[in-house]
C-alpha cells in the first residue's frame, strides 16, 4: 500500500483520500495496540479490561496525539525474518564484546565518532536504524541530522582504521536489512541502485 509522501503538497483528490485513509489506518493500529497493552498490563483479557482499555486508549490518543509518521512501505515476511535473526545474533555478539572489554583488566577502549549518510532519509527509516544501531555491535547514536539524513555514530573499541570502515559498513548493512523488511518497493529499488556508494565526506 502506498502511503502519503512526506511533506507532499495537496495533490490530486485521489491522493488526498488515500492520505486520509492512511491516517485512519495508523490511528486504528495505534488504538488497537494501546488496548492490547492495557489488557496485557492487567494480565487478562476480560470485558471490563477491554472497555477500560478502549476508554484509556481513546483518552491517550486524543490528549497526546503523535506527529503523523508516514509509513509508505509494506511488511515483507522474509525481510523481517532476516532482520530479526541477524538482530538477535548481533545483539549477542555486541553484548559479549562490550562485556569482555568491560571486565578486561587495565584495558581502556578508544573510540571514534563517524558520520554515516543514509540512502533512504525518511523519518521512519532514520528512527528505526538509529534504534537498532544502538543495540548492535560497537555503535551508538550521538546525533541525528534529520535534514541531511545523516547519523553520527559513536564507535567503541577502535583499534585500527579498518574498524571505522567496518562500523560504517555495518550501519549501511543494517539500513539495507531494515528497508528490505519494511521499505516500499521504490525504496528497495533505490537501495539496489546505489549498492556500494562510498561516503562522500
Amino acid at each position: 500500500m502506498t502511503g502519503p509522501a512526506a511533506g507532499a503538497a495537496p495533490g490530486p483528490p485521489d491522493r488526498g483520500v488515500r492520505a486520509r485513509l492512511g491516517r485512519w489506518r495508523d490511528w486504528l493500529i495505534a488504538y488497537g495496540w494501546l488496548v492490547l497493552v492495557w489488557n496485557l498490563l492487567w494480565g487478562e483479557v476480560s470485558w471490563g479490561n477491554l472497555l477500560g482499555g478502549l476508554l484509556v486508549a481513546g483518552v491517550v490518543l486524543v490528549f497526546f496525539p503523535l506527529p503523523p509518521v508516514t509509513f509508505g512501505g509494506r511488511l515483507r515476511l522474509r525481510g523481517l525474518l532476516v532482520f530479526g535473526v541477524r538482530f538477535v545474533v548481533e545483539l549477542v555478539q555486541a553484548s559479549l564484546h562490550v562485556a569482555r572489554i568491560a571486565v578486561q583488566p587495565g584495558y581502556v577502549p578508544r573510540s571514534a565518532i563517524v558520520a554515516v549518510r543514509l540512502r533512504i532519509p525518511t523519518d521512519l527509516n532514520l528512527a528505526l536504524t538509529a534504534e537498532a544501531l544502538s543495540l548492535v555491535p560497537g555503535t551508538l547514536i550521538v546525533e541525528v541530522d534529520r535534514a541531511g539524513g545523516r547519523l553520527y555514530v559513536h564507535v567503541l573499541d577502535v583499534r585500527r582504521p579498518a574498524d571505522l570502515t567496518a562500523a560504517r559498513e555495518q550501519v549501511r548493512a543494517l539500513e539495507r536489512r531494515i528497508i528490505a523488511a519494511v521499505g516500499s518497493t521504490a525504496e528497495v529499488r533505490r537501495m539496489r541502485s546505489e549498492p556500494a556508494e562510498k561516503e562522500s565526506s
Binding site: L91, V92, V98, A99, S134, L135
Partner: peptide, 14 residues
Amino acid sequence: PSRMHAATKPQVLG
C-alpha cells in the same frame, strides 16, 4: 558515550 555502550547492549540482552 562509552558508558552508554555498556548501558545498552549487555544490559538489554541481560
